[in-house]
Design a protein around this nucleic acid. Structure first.
Lengths: 224, 224, 224, 224
DNA sequence: GATGAATGAGGCTTCATTCAT
DNA sequence: AATGAATGAAGCCTCATTCAT
């Protein structure tokens, strides 16, 4: 029987049968969604699989039907929740064109939108920081699938901009992550302060872009 | 090295006479030092107070003589380990003088040295990110004692530099944390990748400073 | 005797099929029976739930599956063991008829039989005395369900006997519990001295009844 | 230094010195008084010697200077608190004279005054009921020193009253404790209900005495 | 597929007891 | 005499995991 969850109950055996089949197919994802919420609330160690089960509308045993251990639930949950962002990064990379200055802005838009402001990536990052030592493969996966490609994208765009005479040559090309660091810091503030610290993200992005483009010096320096 | 138990016997009645008092005075700090190491290894929830005790060279019961609960051990440990950095920030602030460009460099030197490269502040930050939701007072304390003062220091120096005609007026003055964000990102990389990702910090600082001063644009932009 | 675990295997699918359901239905009562014995042996605080579990043929965890805390086990145990006597009081009350002298005797028979001599009510009373301060609801429950109804029954029977001209009017009608006090004292002796003090209960009842009916005075007194 | 207790602090070294010596001599009794209060509050097992020490204004170690174990503290406490009543019983016995009816009343007065209404004997009885199984010597001691002598006193007075033609011969002479049972029941109610059940003890005693003297029957029965 | 009763290892916490000072 | 730091055995309770149904 269907219990306390957001699944809709319809009469009519055909619909019902489809519903059940549909639910069966979606069970693992539902469990992982529930796991995300519970792990966010309590952290990995303090989360009880029983609470995950309750939130997913199943029982403990069902979780063990789909996943071997609590560790696997956690790992699969991270994979499950990260997937969309990995894909979006590809979409972004494919869509870039026009002046390099505009490309940089587009990348920063994505960055702030998905990394700094979105709750899911934020909590994923928190998990990686908190539990990464115990789950190194998770870190490596995110490094390969997201961090390095994204940094590389910055490097390529800036390098192309320099080659095109649009940007100034800079030592920062060696460390393109510097370009994106303010967004990560915004994420960090959100992880730490949550709603206590409200920031005008639009203005923040403008400030970031202004500084990124023009720097602090009044006159251009040499060999800084 | 001294293993912190009473097997170390020295001749000379003065030393001996002081033993017990000395022990009592130093026990809490010894326990908190041990707690730091164990909490770093396993995270808050997975750490056993018994292991903390063993590392400190005492027994479980002794920890409870000094601290009420595991939570209190954790909180006191954070306080204990954070104190030195809080103090150093005051020292830094008091020591700044000369051209504002040099002041900025000095602040960045401190930033990279203490926040990005030092293991203790790094792990403290990891604790705050991982357990902050359960220990909000810890976050607030670090915010008041360190984060906000440090950001404010950046604002003051840059504002003074602008007033002195040394720096360009910039929207980033509203968000002085942007100036320090690359260092925080370096900390983040260290938390995530540990020794797997070795970075030439000197070069990184140069790149950061170059970009901070000069920006990316070839020509100065207007109304960015 | 059956040791209450799954080593007892009977042939016949009907019995087998019922096993699990039967177990589940009977477990709580089995645990509470075991709890009674252990609490009697050691008292509330000194009893280990692990010993209760062992006696019930289950493990510690199983107890916590059915009861939240040790306190709850204790409370439920008291309820569980008291229930039969509560019921019997109703039966007694409904069965009274005939001359009031005979009704008094019947009530005293019940009293001695169930309160003074039966081990279970005796130990329940000991628990109430020993732990009542920490479990006031238990006391109140027994007061409502047993003590007051029983005293009231005495009052009614004696009052009816007086009205019927069978008994003398007495100030003791205000305190009908006086009629039953010797039985409670017998219980008290049993709680204190156990088997060390053997009493001829039949003779005791006769003595109690003789005194209750006739008093000590040779001649009837006036306005005693 | 003298801490938070009811000891008086006087200036003048002679007085002070005497105070200290006096306190030293009184320490054990002070500890036992404190122990009584704590054991009453929590019961034997749940009482912490540390709390006893705090109440007595000493530290844990001091208790162990005077008493070997927690068990010994408990036993000595019972002895300490029981002593006065034992003595009073002797006084009572020695003071009885006059008509036997009056002697009975005097004994009942003592009974109600000291057993039914006094807090200390009440709590002692609770201890004996609750912990008697683990401390049988305590029970035996009270039996020898108090219970049996008191019952014997009742028997003697009633027997003498019968011999003197003042009382009717009754089977209750075999069980003289029946004469005192209402007082014990009052004690029981107090142990169970505390202040929740307020009883008019004077009226109760009258009712008890009336019933004891005259019984319930309208006419004297034969061979009841 | 799903359930949920049952397990048992493990950790936090308490506290009687000891003993150096 | 008295202190109080330290010990360590012991018990309550949790929860990942199993498995009969």
């Amino acid at each position: 029987m269907i219990q306390s969850d957001n699944r809709i109950v319809m009469t009519g055996s055909k619909v019902k049968a489809r519903t059940r089949a549909r639910r069966k197919a979606e069970r693992p994802a539902e469990i992982l969604d529930a796991a995300f919420e519970e792990f966010v609330k309590e952290g990995y160690a303090a989360t009880r699989l029983e609470d995950v089960a309750a939130r997913a509308g199943v029982t403990k045993g069902t979780i063990y039907f789909y996943f071997e251990t609590k560790e696997r639930v956690f790992e699969e949950m991270i994979r499950h929740m990260s997937q969309p962002i990995f894909s979006e990064l590809h979409t972004l990379a494919a869509s870039l064109d026009g002046p390099y200055r505009g490309r940089l802005r587009a990348m920063m838009g994505f960055l702030y939108n998905r990394i700094a402001e979105d709750r899911v990536p934020r909590e994923i990052l928190r998990f990686l920081i908190a539990e990464g030592v115990r789950f190194p493969e998770l870190i490596d996966r995110h490094d390969q699938e997201f961090v390095r490609p994204f940094i590389e994208l910055f490097r390529e765009v800036v390098a192309a901009g320099i080659a095109a005479g649009e940007f100034r040559a800079t030592a920062a090309l060696e460390f393109p992550d510097i370009f994106m660091s303010p967004a990560l810091m915004l994420n960090l503030w959100a992880m730490l302060f949550g709603k206590r610290r409200q920031i005008d993200v639009e203005a923040f992005i403008e400030a970031h872009f202004d500084l990124l483009m023009n720097g602090l010096s009044l006159s251009r320096e040499v060999g800084a």
